[in-house]
Amino acid sequence: MIRFENICRDFKVGDEVVHALKDVNQHIEIGEYASIMGPSGSGKSTLLNVLGLLDTPDSGRYWLNGRDVSQLADDDLAATRQEIIGFVFQSFHLIQRMTALENVELPMVLARVAPAERRDRAHQMLSKTGLEDRMNHRPDQLSGGQRQRVAIARSIVMEPKVLLADEPTGNLDTQSGKEVLDILEGLHADGLTLILVTHDPVIGQRSHLHLRMIDGVIQAERRHQQRRPEDDSHAPV
């Protein structure tokens, strides 16, 4: 489902070249619940960006959903993101001038979904995340936890295969964080592939596939045995 082969990504910072991803090989299956942890600067955000097709590797190959996406053109990347990937950000990234409902509709607006249909779908998603009574509120009228739930509703409205969450609970208090995590895990339980970057060891422990990054290199570790057989195979470190 997701396969990294010898992925490298370098950045120039001043005169220095930082190797954010060093020859990464990794395999993640459908329905996986993976966490990426590591100290800051270890390359975990870069890994997530490359996974989400926001960034392209300098070398190596990336198979997503059975297709080599490492050399796609800009607009094809965008199309693939739209179809397959959902994003949840630490800072929510909601558009302040739009209501919760409009924010959730946004991906469907870009995908030219008819207004009536997208209203229905946005409605459903917001109900799913427990925000039926907050649909017409603007982000600044919502609590942090509610905002992140709007963002989650937005991320799944296009029915993606993979949900990428970058520190989804990082800006939230413990209680809201727990609620958000419950929703995300619920989505995973429904079959969505969930990959999240986190600093929180508790969350790390709840994930099934634990990826630890240090200096651009992944150390994979399976914490819980999955029932599905294909989960046995995972790429060498």
Partner: peptide
């Protein structure tokens, strides 16, 4: 954000 959501150029 729009780009992440799949907006074309």
């Amino acid at each position: 954000l729009l780009k992440a959501l799949g907006a074309r150029r």
